[in-house]
């Protein structure tokens, strides 16, 4: 099998598998705790240890940027690999808390799509903020297909919800206003583009009854019939639909957010960390097993050949879905959040 040989050749190239010192190697991986950590241990960590002899110690972590800042300050870097969420990743990069990766070690055959590769991180998981629709509340014979439809309160009357922050919403507004996906951040970078987005948001403001804060809220609202149309996280909508509520995802115009694995600057076991990242990113079998439990996939090549089509089409990294979404430009937001958030807060109160 091609996959096995890749890992093997990679391992040999690193001189890892043969090295007796390796058997005692241990790396510390920081990430989510709870159930997700158990899934990770079962699907990725144990087989990895078996194949390479490198032991994995998982630590649950939140507020990782401040923890990284602390490690930087004290010079005691405790992690070899860490998960970083969408906003944590660019912030950590900007502050110089993580090191540039050696992609030759992770993906020597260049099999990952460009979207999955970053100078400082490997895509660990993805989720999408999409438009979710209560199909039973739609006017007869109509189907909601885009953010333009979300804005069309004449054709699609009923209460709506959006997340209480400028991130994503300004993009949604521009899409609704006819800006093509490719030009989104070009437009948004200008004062005029920002004005245009807020102007568009003015139109929908009074139809949005809830400006939600936590991911559970829009799902609760949909389920209670409190709102008919809302932005929401894709995985939760799928779960809601499975539980019997007639809810559907509109992938068109979804904001694809990526979470990364990165190696903290000053980490002690660089080679082993790279080997671990490689296994995480490339192994389609394990990715398939993972996705069956957790609907936030990465980009492991060949993943969608290994899972049923019905499951694949509700995942954010499915090729059909990737095509119609835009990649959330976290870099843009790290730079502009403060100013736009202030404008957003003031706008909401008006």
């Amino acid at each position: 099998m091609r996959f096995k040989s890749t890992v093997l050749s990679g391992a040999i190239a690193l001189g890892l598998a043969a090295s007796p010192a390796l058997a005692e190697k241990k790396i510390v991986v920081s990430g989510s705790g709870g159930g997700l950590a158990k899934v990770m241990t079962a699907i990725y960590d144990k087989p990895f240890t078996k194949a390479t002899g490198i032991e994995i110690r998982r630590v649950a972590s939140t507020n990782r940027v401040s923890l990284l800042a602390g490690m930087e300050k004290t010079g005691r870097v405790l992690w070899d690999v860490t998960e970083l969420s969408g906003p944590e990743f660019p912030l950590s990069v900007a502050k110089g808390f993580v090191r540039a990766l050696d992609w030759n070690l992770i993906d020597p055959d260049n099999r990952l799509p460009a979207i999955a590769r970053d100078k400082y991180g490997v895509v660990a998981a993805s989720f999408s903020t999409i438009l979710a629709v209560r199909t039973d509340k739609l006017p007869k014979g109509k189907k909601m297909k885009s953010w333009a439809d979300f804005w069309d309160v004449k054709t699609f009357p009923g209460p709506r919800a959006l997340r209480n922050r400028p991130v994503e919403n300004l993009e949604f507004a521009l899409l609704a206003d006819g800006v093509p996906t490719a030009d989104l951040y070009k437009v948004l970078a200008t004062k005029a583009g920002q004005d245009r987005a807020f102007k568009k948001l003015d139109q929908i403001k009074k139809h949005v009854v809830v400006w939600w804060k936590t991911g559970a809220q829009p799902i609760q609202l949909l389920s209670d019939g409190e709102v008919y149309y809302t932005s929401a996280f894709n995985g939760r909508v799928t779960k809601l639909a499975k539980s019997g509520t007639p809810a559907e995802i509109v992938w068109n115009g979804g904001a694809l957010a990526l979470a990364y694995y990165a190696i903290p600057k000053g980490a002690k076991n660089i080679k082993e960390a790279h080997a671990y990242l490689s296994a995480l990113a490339l192994d389609a079998d394990r990715a398939a097993a993972f996705v069956k439990i957790v609907p936030y996939p990465g980009f492991a090549p060949g993943l969608y050949g290994k899972i049923p089509a019905s499951m694949g089409k509700v995942l954010p990294t499915h090729p059909d879905n990737v095509k119609v979404q835009f990649k959330l430009n976290v870099g843009f937001w790290v730079k502009n959040t403060e100013a736009l958030q202030e404008r957003w807060d003031a706008w909401l109160l008006k």
């Binding site: 401040s66 209480n164 403001k205 949005v208 809830v210 400006w211 804060k213 403060e338 958030q341 909401l348």
Partner: peptide, 24 residues
């Protein structure tokens, strides 16, 4: 206030929490 309020119901603590998240 965040869960049951409308868009004009945010309290200062919400803003503080938000800025802590943003490392401000």
């Amino acid at each position: 206030p965040a869960l049951v309020g409308g868009r004009k119901d945010a309290m200062l603590a919400n803003v503080i929490a938000h800025n802590v998240e943003q490392l401000n």
